[in-house]
Design a binder for these strands. Structure first.
Lengths: 335, 335
DNA sequence: CTGTTAGCGCCTTCAT
DNA sequence: ATGAAGGCGCTAACAG
């Protein structure tokens, strides 16, 4: 790393000062077009690359943002990162990825370490096990943060999400319109507003249609897959619902297994509609209806707002959009 | 960012020199256990976080690696990143993500910019449109690089891949054993060893079973989805194969559409086996057989080797493993 | 428009 | 075992 070309090299070569070189490289208005061209040409010729560490140390700008998510191998989040990366690229920003694996302690460790000045801003989708929000409240005071998809109610920051309430409401209505009389709900993310909103949507849809609401029809998500399977089996055999709303993709699979085992045909005997973001939806079993979130757009939107904050551009709180989710009906497709 | 706690703050507070603090923080042997403890305690109390830019500028260590991949919203790559991130986390390394979107120029821009010293090492999965490898040859001379999954033949670097030849060979044999007499091949990644290996596996399997090999049975991947659809339709109607090997997941979907349109039943009329890494395989149409690569393990393995290089630990070339892919048979499953 | 100067926060000789 | 001093490469003030 010794023979590296630096501003000094360029300055010496062109017989000008390093300050001039630096300003030319940064396209400063104080430098003549002629000098800029000379510097830029030589820089390209010598393959000069600005040392980001030195630049950052001096200017406190890292050109880097962090994305903290529960899990990258998840269609929603990988699509969201795709959107984030696209926006970051346009601004020549770099993107750091951190997975919490739904672990709140890991989340805290990440946010703490990001206070070192490694990044200019942070995009976060909250871990489902997070119950104490103090570290977030401290965080948003110290560094620009935008929450996306998985947010918490009580925090003063930009949040970009789907309209979870409406999505669940619509999904439930969809089942009712298709003749369901007894609709169960598979409940997850209970400590996040995401989860609460979806539950409310389901409950209100039932209420508005004068449908029975029964706690027995609600199954809570458990970490162990096996338990979910057992609970769903229990639900289906004892309550005999004719419709199910699954609030996360992870619930869909055990549903299938139980139906197969009980020789129930989907959607004839039991109609299921699940929140899901599989990007190859057409490969899905045609019997599954899905509520698909606009993951890519959420990523773009969240990154866009983060950059607006970084640019210190003022915006009204009500400019922050609440995106709608698309309800995809697939029951009629026949493969 | 002014009131930030630095080594200076710690030094002043403890009435010792900056140098001593720095050494204590780096666990230098020259510092007494007593002093170390005092420094560490205060650092924790004051939530001191080392400034990575300053540290990097001085020490040339970034504790950061870059991952360059074609597309993040792809099950294989998101699982691979998962594996990479896990290994990086253990070493307290940060992970930067770059998507090429299969564009060779973007790839070159990334590799060039990473020469600035932003990262200690790079993990790359090559873009399918890359035909000139000069930038890679230059790159590997200047910075530690490990290639994974999508590699190029002629380059002197560690490469971690599935055994693409064997995977395709086994998949083809699988169809032959299930009675196929005329097997077509959907060919992609033709400029990467990945693509070549898979094709060879298919061809050799046919050869070893004295099956006809016909160029008419091979369809080349096109960027426009519509063309693939047309080409597959053309293949199926004119050649009437009874088996198809799809070398990438993107080919599976148009296959389905064509079959549906022609009222062909899978796998009764046509057996299809596709390379695919959908992580919710059970949700797939039960008629599809898949070759699934151990994406997570490849990510771990690749990252592991990169760190071995960074540690300057010597290893034999033949320590580099060639991982086998798993062949998942799903035709018999009935939902 | 260009140059001089002074650090950003940290690590690393070299002294003590 | 501890401290003093210099500098990594760059940018921000301030002069000219």
């Amino acid at each position: 790393m010794k023979g590296n070309v630096t501003v000094k090299t360029l300055a010496k070569e062109l017989n000008i000062s390093i300050a001039t070189v630096s300003k030319a490289l940064n396209d400063s208005y104080e430098i003549s077009a002629d000098t800029k061209r000379k510097v830029l040409d030589l820089a390209k010729k010598l393959k000069y690359e600005r040392n980001p560490a030195a630049s950052n140390l001096r200017s406190h700008k890292t050109k880097t943002i962090a994305v903290i998510i529960p899990e990258i191998a998840n269609n929603f989040f990988s699509l969201a990162i795709n959107g984030i990366e696209e926006i970051a690229r346009k601004r020549d920003y770099h993107v750091l990825i951190y997975q919490t694996h739904e672990n709140s302690e890991t989340e805290i460790a990440f946010t703490d370490s990001l206070l070192s000045g490694r990044v200019d801003g942070i995009l976060i989708s909250v871990s489902s096990s997070t119950e104490n929000y103090e570290h977030f409240k401290e965080l948003v005071k110290k560094i620009p943060v935008v929450f996306f998809d998985r947010t918490i109610e009580d925090i003063d920051a930009v949040k970009i999400t789907t309209d979870d309430y409406e999505s669940a409401y619509n999904a439930t209505c969809h089942l009712i319109e298709n003749g369901c009389k007894k609709i169960a709900y598979l409940f997850a993310l209970n400590n996040l507003s995401t989860g609460q909103q979806r539950l409310s949507g389901y409950q209100d849809a039932l209420k508005h249609h004068q449908m029975p609401m029964d706690h027995e029809l609600i199954v809570n998500y458990e970490k162990e897959e096996e338990k979910n399977y057992q609970n769903i089996r229990q639900l289906i055999t004892s309550q005999k619902p004719d419709g199910i709303i699954s609030s996360i993709e992870e619930f869909a699979l055990p549903c299938y297994y139980v139906c197969r085992e009980l020789h129930l045909s989907i959607p004839k005997d039991l109609k299921i509609i699940s929140f899901s973001n599989l990007n190859t939806a057409a490969l899905l079993s045609p019997s599954l209806s899905t509520v698909t979130q606009p993951a890519f757009e959420i990523g773009r939107e969240a990154a866009g707002f983060l950059f607006r904050i970084l640019d210190k551009k003022h915006f009204d709180p009500d400019e922050i959009p609440t995106l709608k989710s698309a309800l995809i009906k697939r029951e009629s497709s026949s493969l």
